[in-house]
Write a protein that binds this DNA or RNA. Sequence first.
DNA 1: AATGAATGAGACTTCATTCAT
DNA 2: CATGAATGAAGTCTCATTCAT
Lengths: 212, 212, 212, 212
Amino acid sequence: MSQGARPALQSRSRATRDKLLKALECLLRERSFAEVTVADIAREAGLAVGTVYRRFENKDAFIPVLFEIYKQRLDAFMGSAGGVVVEPEGGLKTVLRQLTEQSWTFLTSERGVAREAHLYARLRPDLVGEEWDALLAASQDSYGTLIDAFSDEIKRPRQEAAEMLSYHFNTALTERALYPEDGVGSQMTVSDLDFVRAIADFAYGYLVTEAD
Amino acid sequence: MSQGARPALQSRSRATRDKLLKALECLLRERSFAEVTVADIAREAGLAVGTVYRRFENKDAFIPVLFEIYKQRLDAFMGSAGGVVVEPEGGLKTVLRQLTEQSWTFLTSERGVAREAHLYARLRPDLVGEEWDALLAASQDSYGTLIDAFSDEIKRPRQEAAEMLSYHFNTALTERALYPEDGVGSQMTVSDLDFVRAIADFAYGYLVTEAD
Amino acid sequence: MSQGARPALQSRSRATRDKLLKALECLLRERSFAEVTVADIAREAGLAVGTVYRRFENKDAFIPVLFEIYKQRLDAFMGSAGGVVVEPEGGLKTVLRQLTEQSWTFLTSERGVAREAHLYARLRPDLVGEEWDALLAASQDSYGTLIDAFSDEIKRPRQEAAEMLSYHFNTALTERALYPEDGVGSQMTVSDLDFVRAIADFAYGYLVTEAD
Amino acid sequence: MSQGARPALQSRSRATRDKLLKALECLLRERSFAEVTVADIAREAGLAVGTVYRRFENKDAFIPVLFEIYKQRLDAFMGSAGGVVVEPEGGLKTVLRQLTEQSWTFLTSERGVAREAHLYARLRPDLVGEEWDALLAASQDSYGTLIDAFSDEIKRPRQEAAEMLSYHFNTALTERALYPEDGVGSQMTVSDLDFVRAIADFAYGYLVTEAD
DNA sequence: AATGAATGAGACTTCATTCAT
DNA sequence: CATGAATGAAGTCTCATTCAT
């Protein structure tokens, strides 16, 4: 299995492709990608196995497309919710909380796709590569912008802070959002709301305390 | 595949079991558990496939044992390094940094086992269950102790703080320690040392800033 | 897959058919018929897959047509070069050499079609049948004519000689002409020219030596 | 599908391997290798599909082994019948006839394996390579020896003669022996005996007539 | 007539598990 | 107890053929 989603220019092809992706996304709510078979996807989409291979060179070819979808949704979400920094009246802490809340909302609503995106960035980085890197770079950039907007409050070097914020939100939120029933976060008694606030406050505390 | 590591009371059986686990651990340095076949484990251990099934009911039965090993190593490590809180002269920040550094050292040295432990806690929580819960509870407990030792400096409710610290260190450190070449942490330019410090400082900042 | 090339009476249909055959012939220069897919043929012809099935009942239906083409080319070639026996001044040996050389030229220039024709006469005789038989009969006939023209020199019974000459040239030339890089002839050091002469001389020697 | 027959050192493995090869050989009497499926081989051998893959890395791995078998049988046959040249009282013509007859006997008795050996030397030379080259070289060698024994009668250069004899017998005999019902030889009326004699006489005639 | 998306039988291959030796 | 050959279900993928547009 290697790279390659097939071009789908015609409307019918496009529809098929979308049916397949929707079917996969649906299946990912219950199982991981590795547990889903090509036959499952075809059945869920109401298509034949061969049809899958007309649109996707092989099973792995779904992964990069899943990433793309994740990216698009993220872009769309961030675009629509992007006014965060625009209203910085509440100060850094408030902005961070708003941002965290939004990310949390996004991750929990896109759990299936997001989970595979994060999982396969680890398990099969070869299948993801540039898409993921671009996403992370964009993430760091936007945190850079945030930092600049509050540079007087922030006591950390810009580059390190941007990297660490990106890392923090990417790891801290995903664990509980994507694996709510298992994983490290499953035993906590704090509510989602308190959790999200706390995650934001970790970032806030880091930014406003002296480095040494 | 279902539950069940077989009892190995005799010394010879015990030796076989250990050989198998050592072999698996060795293989996990290169590949994930799912990519390792039972035949691989047998070959690496210098045993026959059938012998594997005399000690382990099925392939999945390795997972809980792997957890046990992880737990033991963690206990051993924490026991030997557990003097952290005992010498709190450096203050909370220093203690957190020491603690983070130690955890980092542990995770990177036990990468293979730790990676599967964390991965399977997500992918197959049914195989892990109590072991993992116990581990997390213990983790929270020890953070509770830490919090108590610095209760005057800390501005957060004890229970929430314990849970969040446990969560933070479990997620923030593992991502970069267990998936150094892929994942979210792969694009960062900050050094390991700076990274570890920053992670500690997230915790410090969270603890010492006001909740609201 | 069974028999049946569809009639193509209209000019457009005829053009489609020719496009397909030309495309197939082109593909046969690189791969064997079994390795060529119907989609390959369609693509090479610049047509859709469905269009192929409007002209050819199934993939196998190409085989008899390929034979027909082979036959036509052979007829055309033999017709144009057929003056061999007409100028028998050089004697039997020379005539055989000329004939062999011509056959060699033909086979090497029509390698693709010729290869499949010979291969499928073996692998799927059911698809070829009469076409092939007619070809062989014609071949024997023409060798019969040749024998008659040199009956005084020839020491072999006419029928046997005609059959054996036909067989000899059909097998001896094809092996090296159609599979130059593999097969039985690939290790020889003799040049094409010497090879062709030698093949002619086998025939000559057979004809002019006593049967017993 | 690529190279690789698996080692079979134990007696049971060896037996399985032999069962598989015998089954394949049996199936080759009716169909070509391409038409035989791995499941067919397994069924015919009374084994499971997976067992095939324990002894042969993949389907193609049967081909080289088939060659080896062909080679061994040929060696065995030639060894036992090798006294040809030792009794040259009958002269070159007689020796050639004896030799041709023996080869004919061998080829017709080993039709299935021989057919695939010759076919795959053409279709998949990559799978065969050295085995085949060695066989051809040995064949040329032995014809060289024959030529030396009758050098006074023979009018052709030694090297060319050896190559051409090898080529002649390899192509002329195989066509009719391996594809008796189809192919170029199927329409002949001459008997097997006469055919074999004629093939020998082609060689004889070539050798004893002047080159120019 | 042409198109090419859709079909689905069937081929190859893997590997967790069993069992005769 | 140990062995490793055998098993066969299940998965991935191909491609000749069909059919709605």
